[in-house]
Simulated scan of single mutants.
Amino acid sequence: MQFIQSSAFTAQRAWGALDIANLNGITVRLHWTDEPYVWHVNDGEEVFAVMSGRVDMHYRESGEEKVVTMLAGDIFHATVGTEHVAHPIGQARILVIEKEGSV
């Protein structure tokens, strides 16, 4: 058992992570970042929950780039094949649930 105060978590580098659990090949990780990630497509589904901060989630739908600003408590579900990239606005802490070894 563990309790995690996500607001206190920091990392040595952008997108550094605290591994929380591995649920039969599905990882639950808390990330800290102050820099954008890279455009990518996961090889499975991904759940992305903003714990603190703000994040501009860029994604492509039918070849068109769209952006949604996510606040603490907001959740993004990327289905298989969803091309996306997260751009934090300042510092952000993000809970990511995805297939082990995903990009």
Rank of each mutant, 00 (worst) to 15 (best):
M1N: 08
M1I: 06
M1L: 07
Q2L: 08
S7Q: 13
S7A: 12
A8S: 14
Q12I: 08
R13H: 14
A14D: 15
W15M: 02
A17N: 10
L18P: 01
L18N: 02
N22F: 04
N22I: 06
N24V: 05
N24H: 14
G25S: 12
I26E: 04
I26K: 05
V28E: 04
R29E: 01
T33K: 03
D34H: 13
E35K: 15
P36S: 14
W39A: 10
H40P: 11
E46Y: 00
V47M: 07
F48I: 02
A49Y: 01
A49R: 03
V50Y: 05
M51A: 09
V55N: 02
M57F: 14
Y59W: 15
Y59S: 15
E61K: 13
G63K: 05
E65W: 04
E65A: 04
K66P: 03
K66C: 02
K66N: 10
T69V: 13
M70Y: 13
M70I: 07
L71V: 11
L71C: 11
A72M: 10
H77F: 14
H77V: 15
V80Q: 09
V80P: 10
G81K: 08
T82F: 04
H87C: 09
Q91F: 05
A92R: 08
A92V: 06
R93K: 14
L95K: 07
L95W: 05
L95H: 06
V96P: 01
I97G: 00
I97W: 00
K99W: 02
E100I: 11
G101A: 07
S102R: 01
V103I: 15
